[in-house]
């Protein structure tokens, strides 16, 4: 699920990917959307931000979160 300025690169809608971990998700996305590689964002797996490569299971929800700017 892409959000904010990241969604402008990928399109706003969520999409499905086959990937064993978050590194694989990133690699697949960079192939599809090369502009993404230069962007700053955090990754959340099932609504929790992860810092390192994280294993995924079937149905895991991976979100790409650009820097927050609420309030």
């Amino acid at each position: 699920m892409p959000f904010g300025q990241i969604a402008e690169i990928t399109g706003a809608d969520a999409f499905q990917l086959e990937a064993a971990d978050t590194d694989q998700v990133q690699q697949a996305l960079y192939k599809r959307f090369p502009a993404l590689e230069k962007r700053a964002y955090a990754i959340a797996v099932n609504k929790v931000i992860v810092k390192d490569n994280t294993m995924l299971s079937s149905g895991s929800v991976v979100a790409l979160l650009p820097p927050f700017s609420g309030g």
Binding site: A63, P67, S69
Partner: peptide, 23 residues
């Protein structure tokens, strides 16, 4: 809220161009 909430603000200018807000 400013640091931890996943919320994004897109600043829209009077001429309809925009930029993404940074906190």
């Amino acid at each position: 809220i400013k640091v931890e909430l996943p919320v994004w603000g897109k600043e829209i200018f009077e001429d309809d161009s925009y930029t993404w807000k940074t906190n």
